[in-house]
Nucleic acid binder design. Structure first.
Length: 582
DNA sequence: GCCGTTTTCGGCCCGACTGTTTTCAGTCG
């Protein structure tokens, strides 16, 4: 079992213990262990029979090592099984609703025998929920919004999970002689944050018509298959244990490009493209681009040929959403989308001083390993007490240590000083201007803002941006955009203010964001906002999440020149909002 | 349940804020 699955089972156990009002410290141990497992760079399954190596991981003791071994051998553990007899697995889903914590889940179960989202909806509809203590109109409205959101997202899988699954299937398929290319199509290729099911297109000599039967049999024998859904002449559909459906299509090389184009979508992009083909006297299908009059195939083996035959440049999959890309491709004015290699720095990360796992030095070395010319250390400020956030005094001391590490680096990488400050209830920043004035990178974040009355969110954001030392509005595309409707944030006003004041807006590289923000990022650029992309890493391994973020920027049509941290360090700093003169 | 010792058990990130309150429980980060 992979680390992520093990971590998930441990985290679930923690959730169940919490619903059962278990020892809070024991619960925390399970959460810590889950985090440690997920952050581990090594596959635990490879040395699960060497308890001493498991024990080396901080947060894993004797008991947890035994739990992990049990999970590895039989897919679950005793405590979890026992808890699942007492509580329903669907309660874990209930926990995902905003405003819903373990205490409330327990109360719903005791008072109303409500254990899943549908029953909760029923309890709201019949008015039973309102009879419970603490359930006023506002809380119920909040839950109602959460349920709607839940239904929108259920059934889809996160990009990184889908990508990992695709990589494993690909490795398996490529072992078959005569399979030469395996390419994910569909929303995964387009880089969407969530993926409904996985389309894998396979080609090579083994996929030729006369040979394909053996390759189909091999595909259907993929060991992790939980349920074989269909096995046809050149298509195999199955479901993995996670519930993810995978469709594998084995195609002759001659029509591979047409199939790739067709199955990549999006639907609207394809509809428009086919209309365009018709106007020019062609017909486009999943097999080929052919002339309408005599059926002669014009292009089929490669995507590039198809677009070219229609008078267009090849269109990157991330922007195939029928939002102007066809016109731009026909007029040869598609932007050259940003690539990971364009990035020179990551300017939002945490260390052991607050809630990060690594030291300043380790983060710097990790930055060098990823080819960066600069990073910024931006630990939390005091308002985020649970992270051991820095107050003025500690922030200054930390800044001094960052400078020392920077000097130590001897020019191999620049380590910028920084801080991630919180926006308080009145729009003020929780550290003094004297301290902020000394930092290279000041990111204002919205962590606490969501706990405040939604009527004042916009106003408070605007006020926070007025602080002359705030240089980046943090988590714009993380928390802010995704929750803007529920909190009635006037995004246009916020972006306008950021553009006017020269505050850069931050995109967080994170595969675990449901829903899309590409349109809003495009708007941010069009409104003249400077854009930075960061990982907000708390561990060196999460620096690699950048690749997801890059794909999200590509979906927003962003080119290298649209993103501030593609520039050399001096230009980057000069591109940030200028500090007021002392 | 983990850890670090004061080697056998006590400590383990906590503060802001909401919605319901009439003094606070629960959630969030």
């Amino acid at each position: 079992m992979d680390n992520k699955s093990i971590a998930q089972l441990l985290a679930e156990t923690a959730d169940l213990l919490e619903i059962g009002a278990g020892d809070p410290f024991r619960i925390r141990s399970y959460r810590r262990a889950a985090e440690a497992v997920e952050n581990s760079t090594e596959q635990l399954s490879s040395f699960v029979n060497e308890p001493s190596r498991l024990l080396e991981i901080p947060g894993i003791g004797k008991g947890m090592a035994a739990n992990i071994q049990e999970i590895e051998t039989r897919g679950s553990m005793k405590l979890r099984d026992e808890l699942l007899i007492t509580y329903r697995p669907t309660m874990l889903e209930l926990l995902k609703l905003p405003g819903m914590g373990p205490k409330t889940v327990a109360l719903l179960w005791e008072a109303l025998q409500v254990s899943d989202v549908e029953q909760l909806q029923a309890a709201i509809d019949t008015g039973k929920l309102a009879t419970l203590p603490r359930f006023g109109q506002k809380l119920i409205e909040k839950l109602q919004r959460g349920i709607a959101e839940y239904h929108r997202n259920s059934g889809r899988f996160l990009l990184d999970d889908a990508e990992a699954a695709a990589e494993r299937v690909t490795l398996y398929l490529e072992q078959f002689k005569g399979i030469e290319r395996v390419m994910p199509a569909g929303s995964l290729r387009r880089g969407r944050e969530t993926v409904g099911d996985l389309d894998l297109l396979v080609t090579g000599p083994a996929c030729a018509e006369e040979a394909v039967a053996a390759a189909v049999e091999y595909t259907a024998a993929y060991p992790p298959i939980a349920e074989l859904l269909a096995k046809g002449q050149n298509k195999v559909s199955f479901r993995l244990r996670s519930g993810l459906q995978v469709d594998v299509r084995l195609l002759p090389e001659a029509s591979y490009g047409a199939a790739l184009q067709y199955f990549t979508g999006s639907k609207m992009h394809n509809v428009s493209l086919r209309q365009r083909a018709l106007k020019r006297g062609y017909t486009l299908s999943e097999y080929s681009l052919a002339r309408l009059d005599d059926g002669t195939v014009v292009a089929a083996a490669a995507e590039e040929e198809i677009y070219k035959a229609l008078g267009m440049d090849w269109i990157p999959p991330e922007i195939r959403e029928n939002q102007g890309e066809l016109e731009a491709a026909a007029e040869h004015r598609l932007p050259r989308l940003i690539e990971q290699i364009d990035l020179r720095g990551d300017v939002h990360m945490h260390t052991q001083a607050t809630d990060g796992r690594n030291t300043i030095l380790e983060m710097a070395e990790a930055g060098i390993a990823r080819g960066y010319q600069y990073i910024a250390i931006t630990d939390h400020s005091k308002n985020l007490a649970m992270t051991n956030g820095l107050d003025d005094q500690r922030a200054l001391e930390h800044m001094q240590r960052i400078r020392e590490v920077d000097a130590q680096m001897d020019g191999r990488i620049r380590v910028l000083t920084g801080i991630e400050v919180d926006i308080l209830g009145d729009g003020a920043i929780d550290l003094s201007n004297e301290v902020l004035a000394q930092m290279d990178v000041v990111i204002a974040s919205v962590h606490s803002l969501f706990q405040q009355p939604k009527e004042q969110m916009t106003e408070r954001l605007l006020k926070a941006l007025e602080n002359p030392y705030v240089r980046i509005l943090g988590h714009l595309t993380g928390r802010l955009l995704l929750r803007r409707d529920a909190y009635e944030i006037d995004l246009t006003a916020v972006l306008k203010q950021a553009a006017r004041l020269g505050v850069a807006v931050e995109h967080n590289a994170d595969p675990n964001r449901l829903d899309l923000c590409d349109i809003d990022l495009r708007r941010a650029r069009e409104m003249g906002c400077k854009i930075v992309i960061n990982t907000d890493s708390h561990h060196i391994s999460s620096l690699d999440m950048m690749r997801y973020g890059i794909r999200q920027l590509r979906r927003a049509w962003l080119a290298k020149e649209d993103v501030l941290n593609t520039r050399p360090v001096d230009e980057f700093l000069a591109g940030l909002r200028p500090r007021p003169l002392a």
